[in-house]
Design a protein around this nucleic acid. Structure first.
Lengths: 194, 194
DNA sequence: TGAACTTGATAACATATGTTATCGTGCCCT
DNA sequence: AGGGCACGATAACATATGTTATCAAGTTCA
């Protein structure tokens, strides 16, 4: 789904730096579409400030599948790599400062990096991390109730709850916004009671 | 979660063949535990005949997260690679014929393979496939109702429904076995009606 | 063969969750 | 400043789903 070397593998920063001139800085207001569902991904996106979500449309309903924040990079992975229409839309949530690196430079960069010793290891490590993440999302749906998923989010990634509008979080948790509101009010009640 | 080169990358079969003598053939009856939750994974498991599931325990309830069939290989990936206790149990569903390759030989094999040109590509390709799989599982929970997930399973992986007891499938779909039974009976009714 | 177990269907009831509608608040924009 | 909009809470009602219990059929195994 996405990849971001910089800030996670600082030893590669000199490579990245060579490509900084090709990055286009973009100051985008909230709710700016960076990639539209059905279009092909042409850029790697790096978030300097702000936040972004990936979502898709199901029968007119907006389903959020992931959130991204400062110092994270993303692209619609499959679309980017295989040059197929993106199954998701990417959109800013807050006013954001972004850097877009056109695909051809990313490819060039990857090519350069591939000669770097330990590069394959790094890529493996990264994809393994990603895999663990998606497995854990998936297992959570089998294992946990919506309330438990919310509490887990609250505990493990509170910044999401603090910064992201509630209806996006609801669809991310697989429930309606009304139900999420109910869960919150129930938890608040229990908290004050004891 | 698991990896299986053989049968997907036949050009590597000569490498595998060298390790055949180290594989232990195992004929296991149904419901044989191959790896217990909490233990460390010591073997790569290849399925010649039969089928296997990976599950974990949530408050006494048995939650199945994945099914495996003939010509697939698996291990509790994180446990195998990082030598930590496995979060899941691996158990046969049907009487099965399995081949177990001890971890040290797998490592040795991987080591040998790593000098093979194109090996990194292959590993990447494989992990990308896995990632796509788990993302699609995860997205399905956000996008689809339980009934839709069942129909998708019926359409895309009917062999699972044909061979696996229904209560395992229910927990895999994230619902109770009673509810899965209801979904089936509702679908059967609609089918005969029109 | 017969007892125990597994599997699956179904009913009755309880609870969780979705849907629609309404309201209030705060924010953005001109 | 004020209108429109995004956001979140809540109520009322409808539907989906879980829980528990029961039954029937098939399977396993001593």
């Amino acid at each position: 789904m996405f990849f971001h070397f910089r800030n996670r593998f600082p030893q590669l920063n000199t490579y990245w730096d060579k490509y900084l001139p090709y990055q286009k800085r973009l100051e985008a207001p909230a709710r700016t579409v960076l990639l539209e569902e059905g279009k092909k991904s042409q850029h790697y996106i790096f978030i300097e400030k702000g936040c972004v979500r990936a979502y898709f449309d199901k029968d007119g309903e907006d389903k959020t599948m992931q959130f991204f924040f400062e110092n994270e990079g993303l692209s619609s992975f499959d679309s980017f790599v295989n040059n197929v229409p993106s199954p998701i839309t990417i959109e800013t949530i807050e006013p954001s400062v972004l850097y877009l690196l056109p695909k051809r430079y990313v490819m060039q960069l990857l090519n350069e990096l591939s000669t770097e010793p330990g590069f394959a290891q790094m890529v493996l490590q990264m994809t393994a991390q990603r895999q663990v993440h998606y497995i854990s999302e998936f297992v959570s749906f089998i294992r946990d109730t919506p309330e438990e998923r919310y509490q887990r989010l609250l505990k493990e990634r509170p910044h999401i709850i603090q910064r992201v509008p509630q209806h996006f979080i609801a669809s991310y948790l697989g429930i309606s916004k009304v139900h999420l509101s109910r869960i919150k009010s129930k938890l608040a009640k229990n908290k004050t009671r004891f």
